Computed example of a mutant assay.
Amino acid sequence: MNPAAALRQKAIDEIREADQNFSMLSEKQGLAKAFTTYAADDAIKLNDGAAPTVGFDSIRVQMSRMPANGSVLTWQALKADAAQSGELGYTFGQWMLTSKDNSGKRKTQYGVYVTVWKRQRNGQWRFVLDGGNSTPEPK
């Protein structure tokens, strides 16, 4: 493998790992912890059916307002890719949100997402754009 291809593949592997760790943190410690851990300072979070949330501080405020109803959001990347430079990439995949309705009955929602990742000065990957939308249950 030539050096440029190796650099790109390393970035793809790192982005997949960051995406997986992001989801695991969401599952174990909640959405607020996950999103504030993985958001870049200039991150944009697209919201299904609402205006985007722009900037880390705005994302932190939005996450602090999330109801503590035991909702769990997890996701799995179906595809990841990166620029030849190894500095920018994306993941695309499916998400699942489990929660309880007002009567206490468990419900599950499904969707797809795309996350754009950027390598930070310290070498860590943080998302600069994240969004998704609801879909029917996957077959």
Rank of each mutant, 00 (worst) to 15 (best):
A80F: 00
M1E: 15
D19Q: 04
L78H: 13
S23Y: 02
R8G: 04
G55V: 10
W125I: 01
A6M: 11
N102Q: 13
T37N: 04
K79R: 15
T74D: 04
D13N: 13
G93M: 02
N122F: 03
K100G: 09
I15V: 09
V116K: 05
S103A: 14
W125Q: 02
T108Y: 01
D101K: 09
F35T: 02
D81G: 01
D42M: 06
G111F: 00
P136D: 13
A83Y: 06
G55T: 09
V128S: 04
K139Y: 10
S85Q: 06
P136N: 12
F56T: 07
K107D: 07
A43H: 06
E27A: 13
L7T: 14
N2M: 10
A6S: 11
L7F: 07
N2Y: 08
V116R: 07
L88N: 04
D101M: 07
D19T: 03
K105A: 15
E87Q: 15
W75A: 00
K33N: 10
S85I: 01
V116S: 06
F92E: 14
F22E: 02
K28F: 05
V128R: 05
L46E: 11
G70E: 03
K118E: 11
F92S: 12
E17S: 15
F56Y: 15
L46W: 12
V116C: 06
L129T: 04
I12F: 06
E14H: 03
E137F: 07
L25S: 03
G89V: 01
A82E: 03
W75G: 02
V61G: 10
R119V: 02
Y38A: 00
R121V: 13
T98H: 06
K28H: 12
E27N: 08
T53Y: 07
K33T: 11
M63K: 09
P136F: 06
G132M: 02
K45V: 13
P136M: 09
A32C: 05
G49P: 07
L25D: 04
L73H: 08
K118M: 11
R65V: 10
R65W: 09
R119P: 01
V61R: 15
D81W: 00
Q29P: 02
N102E: 14
K33D: 11
T108V: 13
N122G: 05
V54C: 07
E17N: 11
L25Q: 09
D130S: 01
Q9P: 06
F22Q: 01
S26V: 01
